[in-house]
Computed example of a mutant assay.
Amino acid sequence: MITIPENAKGLIFDLDGTIANTMQHHFESWRKAILPYGIDFNADLFMQLTGKPRWATVEKLNELFGTKMDPIAVGNVKASHFKTLVDSTEEIAVVADVVRKYHSVLPMSIGTGSTRNGAKKTLEIIKMQHFFDFVITADDITNPKPHPETFLKCAALMKVNPKDCVVFEDGILGMQAAKDAGMMVVDVNDYFETVFVL
Score class of each variant (00 low, 15 high):
86 V>E: 07
86 V>C: 11
87 D>K: 12
87 D>C: 02
87 D>G: 09
87 D>E: 13
88 S>I: 02
88 S>M: 03
88 S>A: 15
90 E>N: 13
90 E>Y: 04
91 E>K: 11
92 I>C: 00
92 I>A: 04
94 V>R: 03
94 V>C: 09
95 V>M: 05
95 V>H: 00
95 V>Y: 01
95 V>L: 08
97 D>K: 14
97 D>V: 07
97 D>I: 09
98 V>Y: 02
99 V>I: 04
99 V>C: 05
100 R>E: 09
100 R>G: 08
100 R>V: 10
100 R>N: 02
101 K>Q: 14
102 Y>M: 03
103 H>F: 13
103 H>C: 11
104 S>P: 01
104 S>K: 15
105 V>S: 07
107 P>K: 00
107 P>Y: 04
107 P>C: 04
107 P>H: 02
107 P>F: 01
108 M>T: 01
108 M>F: 06
108 M>A: 08
109 S>C: 10
109 S>G: 15
109 S>Y: 05
109 S>M: 07
111 G>W: 05
112 T>A: 09
112 T>Y: 00
112 T>W: 00
113 G>C: 05
113 G>S: 07
114 S>E: 10
114 S>T: 15
117 N>A: 14
118 G>P: 00
119 A>Y: 03
119 A>H: 08
119 A>G: 12
119 A>E: 02
120 K>E: 15
120 K>R: 14
120 K>P: 08
121 K>C: 11
121 K>F: 08
122 T>R: 09
123 L>E: 08
124 E>S: 14
126 I>M: 09
126 I>F: 07
126 I>A: 12
126 I>H: 05
127 K>E: 14
128 M>A: 09
129 Q>N: 15
131 F>T: 11
132 F>E: 08
132 F>P: 07
134 F>K: 12
136 I>G: 03
138 A>N: 12
139 D>Q: 09
140 D>A: 10
141 I>E: 05
141 I>N: 05
141 I>G: 06
142 T>K: 14
145 K>I: 06
145 K>Q: 10
146 P>N: 14
146 P>T: 13
147 H>V: 09
149 E>D: 11
149 E>V: 06
149 E>A: 13
150 T>H: 03
150 T>V: 10
150 T>N: 02
151 F>I: 09
151 F>C: 04
151 F>S: 11
